[in-house]
Design a binder for these strands. Structure first.
Lengths: 124, 124
DNA sequence: GGCTTGTATTGACGTTCGTTGATGCAACCT
DNA sequence: AGGTTGCATCAACGAACGTCAATACAAGCC
C-alpha cells in the first residue's frame, strides 16, 4: 500500500543549501516543484494540516478526513494519493480502515529549504 | 507597477501557529494554497531561486532571467506576474529595464509555517 | 519626429488538473 | 456463502494551466 513516494526532499532540499543559496538547476527545481504543487491546493493543504496536527507519529483515519469536506469520497482519496506520491505522507491499512500520517522530517526539511537564514551546521 | 499582491503570509502563516498546529480553516487554506501553487512550477521555482539568491535587498533584471530558460519572453513575464500576484516578489521599472526582488520576510514566514517545531516567542 | 530595445499584454492552442458517478477490491459480520 | 462498510480505481467531463506568436507599451537614441 505504501510505495512510489518521491523521497526527494532528502537530497535536494536538505543538501543543496536552500532556495536562496544558489540558483536551482532544472532537476532540483522539477523535483521540488512537485512537492509544492502538491501543497498548492486548498483541499490538500487542509488534509495535510489535519494529518500533521495529530503530532509526531500521529495517525488519522480516512473516515475522519472525508466528512470534513463537501467533496465526494473519490475526490478525497485522489488528493491523498497525490500527497503520498509527493512524498509528504504515507498510509497503512489496519482492518477495515486506512490510516495516514506525515512522513517524519519532511516538513522541517521543506521549511529549511525555504528559510533564508540557513541553520548552522548543515554542511554535512 | 507594483500592486495586487496577496499579503496573506503575514496574517495566516505567521499568526496561526503553522500547518501542524491545528487544522486550517477553508479561508486560510485557500490563501496559502495560492502561494504554494505559485511555487509549484519548475520555472517559477528557478525564477524565485535566481532572485532570492541575490541576497537581502538584491535585485535581478528581467534581462538576466529570461536567457536562462528555453522559453519565450512572454512566458517568463507571465510566470513573474504569477509570483508577484502570490505576494512573493515585487518589481520596479528603472529606465528601460525592470528589476525584481523577493519581498522581505516572505520566505521565512513560509518556512515558519511549515516547520513542525515552532520557534519560541512567536505568540505576538 | 521615427527607430530600436526591453518588457507586458492579448488571444489562441494543447495539456493538465479537480471533480464526479460508477465500479472494484478488501475486510468485517452474520 | 451472502451482505455491508470503508476505501481505491476507472472513465469522463469542464475548468484551469503553461506556452507561444502577435501585438502593445515604455524608454532611450538617432
Amino acid at each position: 500500500m505504501s510505495k512510489q513516494e518521491l523521497e526527494l526532499i532528502g537530497q535536494d532540499a536538505a543538501c543543496c543549501g536552500g532556495l536562496s543559496a544558489a540558483p536551482l538547476d532544472e532537476d532540483q527545481a522539477a523535483d521540488l516543484a512537485k512537492v509544492f504543487k502538491a501543497l498548492g491546493d486548498p483541499v490538500r493543504l487542509r488534509l495535510m494540516s489535519m494529518i500533521a496536527s495529530r503530532g509526531d507519529g500521529g495517525e488519522v483515519c480516512v473516515c475522519d478526513l472525508t466528512p470534513a469536506f463537501d467533496l465526494s469520497q473519490p475526490t478525497i482519496s485522489h488528493h491523498l494519493k497525490l500527497l503520498r506520491q509527493a512524498g509528504l505522507i504515507d498510509c497503512e491499512r489496519r482492518g477495515t480502515w486506512v490510516y495516514y500520517w506525515v512522513l517524519p522530517g519532511v516538513l522541517d526539511k521543506l521549511a529549511a529549504f525555504l528559510a533564508t537564514t540557513q541553520p548552522a551546521g548543515v554542511t554535512a
